[in-house]
Design a binder for these strands. Structure first.
Lengths: 245, 245
DNA sequence: TTTTATAGTTATATTTATATCACACATTTA
DNA sequence: TAAATGTGTGATATAAATATAACTATAAAA
């Protein structure tokens, strides 16, 4: 329990369409001594943000009326307030960091309350210390890696383009994301469960075979001989990995 | 993936009055390497929680003797343990009430096992991320024990790969797990029974000779001369061990 | 709207891993 | 020494994991 008086309390705007999630956040942030306000959709979020000028915004990506990305852009346009994005899968991080929306941080669901609170504190601290170069540094960090090259494989993360042996091939978004996740850690075997969670999102309850089928479609496009894959390899009993040579 | 050694296993207390639900949870969480304990009513739940001090509690709202909300309050009063509430209705009142009592998270029935496990993991992630860079934490976590080197033997736990005298050899998952178990404690003789329990699993009732056969297959792949093993040694009358040089 | 592309599901085929058995062989001990 | 016990081995049946094809649903585009 923080013993701060309410009058100096920082105000946090929580934007999520699910009431229970908002409840969790409200409860825990209040407990930490923050004042909270809520919005359940994008349009309301923008309105409230501009009117109340909160000290920090927690913003879910999936929102009715106006999606989180647009909301973020819109708010950042008028206000200099730290925004932490909430996302269900890793793939969405690109959108946040890549599209110049100005989000300051992101956190993937399901998050622990502890972690979230820690992030909130960290981001509020940064505002206080105006000349802190941490934010800048982080963005550059992420941006650096706009290309992944592994063996014959070349992923351009900005253009969502894949080259195999120099030749451009056409992958669907889902296929691209799977390949990217695997290629970002070559030789590391990744289970189907992990792929489902990181690419499809933890809220996805589909069949695990879905991964196999997607892998097969990728192979049809990147492998010379689908029946003897040289790039995207099966580790039987475990999962898949990208061979680095 | 799920073959974590029991000694560092986190303990999860499952509180639900329906045996089948508990069974599902026990089964799946065990598979993920967690130790589980159970309670079927509120009073027992509090007792067990205070006595065993679990690392996390899954708590149904509807319970005999003492309802989940009171249980939550009671436990939170004495222990700082993450509690995930399970609720059957989406009546928000329940959830809100639950949250005011200090629950850290909630999940509505019917829930997918995948989601539940994800939540459990998230809530167990105790590492406070003070900095805003998630990757740092993750990497350190993974890198901790991703390799085992004993004598001429080198196991890469990420790649599920084994090298003998620098050369990569191909083991099946079962073979890899046996070798990993033995190599993680070189010179320590391990009985067949222990191997069956730790590698094959607690509920496995197969022939003990199965171990011998698996050992033999490993030897065929890692030993120069199968009839005079130098790495994976038999301790007659006891079991097997890995020679450290 | 219709058409097209993409993604997900299901059932079945195929491949590979694994368990088990029966017996050979080795070692210990009575 | 013979008997008893413990271990190694090859063959094979079974089980499990994975690949694949065909189909359905959904979303995006025309």
């Amino acid at each position: 329990m923080e013993e701060e008086l309410m009058k100096d309390a920082k105000t946090i705007l929580i934007v999520d369409d699910e009431q229970p999630i908002r409840d969790i956040l409200v409860y825990n942030l209040s407990k930490e001594g923050y004042r909270t306000i809520e919005a359940g959709d994008g349009v309301t979020a923008v309105d409230i943000a501009l009117e109340k000028k909160p000290d920090l915004i927690l913003l879910d990506i999936m929102l009715p009326k106006m999606d989180g990305l647009s909301v973020c852009k819109r708010i950042k346009n008028s206000l200099n307030v730290p925004i932490i994005m909430l996302t269900a899968k890793d793939g969405e991080i690109d959108k946040i960091l890549g599209l110049e929306l100005g989000a300051d941080d992101y956190i993937t669901k399901p998050f622990s309350v502890r972690e979230l609170v820690a992030r909130v504190k960290a981001n509020l601290r940064k505002v206080e210390v105006v000349s802190n170069n941490q934010t800048v540094e982080m963005k550059e960090d992420k941006k650096k890696e706009s290309k992944i090259v592994v063996g014959d494989l070349e992923l351009d993360l900005d253009k969502f383009e894949v080259k195999v042996r120099g030749e451009v091939i056409d992958l669907t978004l889902r296929e691209f994301e799977v390949l990217k996740f695997l290629a970002s850690q070559p030789e590391q075997v990744v289970t189907r469960e992990t792929l489902l969670e990181k690419v499809w999102g933890y809220e996805y309850y589909g069949d695990i075979r879905t991964v196999d089928v997607t892998v097969r479609r990728i192979r049809e496009k990147i492998e010379k001989d689908t029946s003897a894959p040289k790039i995207l390899i099966t580790k039987r009993g475990v999962g898949y990995y990208i061979a680095s040579k």
